[in-house]
Design a protein around this nucleic acid. Structure first.
Length: 466
RNA sequence: GGCGGGAUAGCCAAGUGGUAAGGCAGAGGUCUGCAAAACCUCUAUUCGCGGGUUCGAUUCCCGCUCCCGCCUCCA
């Protein structure tokens, strides 16, 4: 079965075919963070959706060349560095580092390239593109010295968002716009310097200033991936105007279609409400880690609902993730024990494997895919209980799990058992041999207090991390 | 006002023109010294509401209600 994605541009489920004539490599651009603060879990929902996309494409044999930009100059970063009394680069570096740490915590596979907007290479590229646009009449410098895109030169503007520009209701934001633009919708490509920018400034053919936000993605995408790419992702809130602007700039510069498939993930809600600082339900990844949740638990919650559906993030769902993950852990543990004597890596349960991957082929239907996984867990646990699962079966299931986990990244990380806990286990074994149940239970409590859970099985005591 | 996305058990959620996957939570049971884990059984006569098409609709059509998002630099 072919991979199919819902393309925002056409609103159709489309069979995925990469540009690459060999059908091997995929060009993927994903809008990254603005590094003025720690990213919040809503941001990470988008990055996890993109991670699932990338990993599934890889599982299907594609090589993914993925770019994720870092916006390290804009109004917020400038305001932030001024408030912190730091140079812009120093201020944003802190949040870039934090962002990469967070991605690691959430087991997000790094992009091939993480270009920064302020990299001189890309500043130069942006200026080059803007110059081209001005030269060909797609852009103009207004009296305020900023350079704007001339919207009426690009009739396709609005097609991605399916908006009719004539019917746009004026909102408060644009009525404040006092600039000398030809048309109210014209957006800035180059923003002329003003006092509020302080020392954040670059030279350009239009005088001192800084790039607009939209041109950044166009410059990086075309510079790193070429004029046309396979997939461009982001949150739904980027559809308009950001991605519309990207299309306009890029296509007017290159003369090519910019993106074949647009994919956008829906917003995250927290406890049924829009996440906002004023509502007190605003969480960065770090806030949740401080509350004792792990990266993979958060990954599970953020990944377990289809990307196109609004996701209601709750603490109940985090608790559910913990239970579901430990169910997976127990299963992997049992399979590993059972497979110990079997080293032959062949013999995949093909039908099951295919059902999992086919579910993801269908516009990343993660719920159906997880359904397949849990069905198999139940079936093989039952077989294990009945002593009907051979070591070869167990090995085959583990091989399958490794493929599944390459996409999901749900496996528990190995942790060394501390010496003190090992000693307690030994002491408990002695107590149990003597049928001293009171002592056995007391030691079990001590092990629990040390952060480990001990279970008694036919093969003896088993330890797992709490 | 325009455009778009939703409404399935206590919660999350899949899905199909033929009678409702899966996860979490809950109840009972098997196993266990007790636990834990695992397994078994149970938990939506029903898929927002009202019509229509059909032998049959949660799934198709029409109308309605409610929720959410976007509408010019928020993933």
């Amino acid at each position: 079965m072919a991979i199919r994605f819902l393309n925002t541009y056409t609103r159709q489920l489309e069979e995925f075919r990469p540009l690459d004539p060999a059908g091997k490599s995929v060009k993927l651009y994903t809008c990254g963070p603005t590094v003025y603060n720690y990213a919040h879990i809503g941001n990470f929902r988008a990055y996890l959706f993109e991670d699932l996309l990338q990993r599934h494409l890889q599982a299907r044999g594609y090589e993914v060349n993925r770019v994720m930009n870092l916006t390290d100059v804009d109004d917020k970063t400038i305001r932030g560095c001024q408030a912190a009394g730091l140079p812009l680069a120093e201020f944003t570096q802190k949040f870039k580092d934090a962002f990469f740490e967070d991605l690691k915590t959430l087991r997000v596979q790094p992009a091939t390239t993480f270009p920064s907007a302020t990299d001189p290479v890309y500043i130069a590229r942006m200026i080059e593109m803007i110059a081209h646009l001005v030269e060909h009449g797609y852009a103009y410098q207004a009296e305020d010295k900023s350079v704007y895109f001339r919207l009426n030169k690009f009739p396709n503007y609005g097609k991605l968002a399916h908006l009719n520009l004539d019917e746009l209701r004026p909102s408060g934001r644009i009525s404040n716009d006092e600039y000398e633009k030809e048309s109210i919708g014209d957006f800035a490509l180059w923003k002329a310097w003003d006092a509020a920018d302080g020392d954040v400034v670059w030279d350009s053919p239009w005088g001192k200033g800084r790039p607009g936000w939209h041109i950044e993605c166009s410059a990086m995408s075309t510079a790193l991936l070429g004029p046309e790419i396979d997939i461009h992702c982001g949150g739904v809130d980027n559809i308009f105007p950001h991605h519309e602007a990207e299309i306009a700039q890029s296509e007017c510069c290159t003369g090519h279609r910019f993106v074949r498939v647009w994919m956008h993930c829906a917003h995250l809600m927290v406890e049924g409400q829009k996440m906002s600082k004023s509502a007190g339900n605003f969480y960065t990844l770090r806030n949740l880690l401080d509350k004792g949740y792990t990266g993979r638990e958060i990954r599970y919650v953020l990944l377990s609902v289809n990307y196109r559906l609004p996701l209601n993030f709750t603490f109940e769902s985090l608790a559910g993730a913990r239970s579901a993950l430990s169910r997976i852990d127990e299963w992997v543990e049992r399979l590993t024990t059972q497979a110990a004597s079997e080293t032959n890596a062949s013999g995949h349960p093909l039908a099951a494997q295919m059902r999992f991957e086919e579910a993801l082929d269908d516009d990343l239907n993660i719920s159906a895919a997880l359904g397949v996984l849990f069905d198999i867990i139940r079936e093989s646990n039952r077989a294990l209980d009945q002593n009907a699962l051979t070591p070869a079966d167990a090995r085959a299931l583990l091989n399958w799990w490794n493929r599944v986990n390459a996409v999901l990244q749900f496996q528990r990380e190995e942790t060394a058992i501390p010496q003190t806990v090992l000693e307690l286990v030994e002491a408990r074994a002695a107590a149990r041999a003597a049928k001293n149940w009171a002592a056995s239970d007391e030691i079990r409590a001590q092990i629990d207090a040390a952060g480990w859970v001990v279970k008694d099985s036919k093969e003896g005591q088993k330890l797992t991390r709490k």
